[in-house]
Simulated scan of single mutants.
Amino acid sequence: MAIDDKASNAAEQLGGKAKEAAGKATGDERLEAEGRGDQTSAKVKKVGEDVKDVFR
């Protein structure tokens, strides 16, 4: 299950980067902010997974 979570987090981070880039390219500040939020969310989830791995 952890591998699935890690892959999901990586995909979410890449999607966030794509949204942020699209927002910058089109001047859409809301999309850009949403992309940054997705990236932050993925990073927080990754840290949680890393902590769980330490305690296994």
Results as ranks from 00 to 15, higher is better:
K19N: 08
L31E: 08
T40L: 10
K46P: 03
D50V: 00
G23L: 07
K46V: 05
V47T: 15
A7L: 15
K19G: 04
R56K: 15
I3Y: 11
K45F: 04
I3G: 04
I3Q: 14
G15N: 06
E20C: 01
K24M: 07
R56C: 10
D53T: 12
E34Y: 00
Q39Y: 01
G15D: 04
G37N: 12
K52A: 15
Q13R: 14
E29K: 15
G23E: 06
G16D: 01
G16N: 02
A7G: 08
E34W: 00
N9W: 05
V51I: 15
K6F: 07
S8Y: 12
T26Q: 08
K17N: 06
A25N: 09
D50F: 05
A18Q: 11
I3R: 11
K17R: 09
E34A: 08
E34M: 06
Q13K: 14
A33D: 06
G37V: 09
E34V: 08
E29N: 12
D4A: 09
K52W: 10
G27S: 08
K52T: 12
K43P: 02
A42W: 01
Q39P: 00
S41L: 05
G16Q: 03
A18P: 04
M1L: 11
L31G: 02
E20V: 05
A21I: 07
D4C: 05
Q13H: 14
R30W: 02
A7E: 15
G23V: 07
A21K: 11
M1G: 14
E29L: 13
D50N: 12
K45M: 05
R30G: 00
K17E: 09
K24F: 02
G35F: 00
A18K: 12
S41G: 00
T26G: 11
K19S: 07
G35I: 01
K52C: 03
R30P: 01
T26V: 10
D28V: 03
E32M: 08
D4T: 05
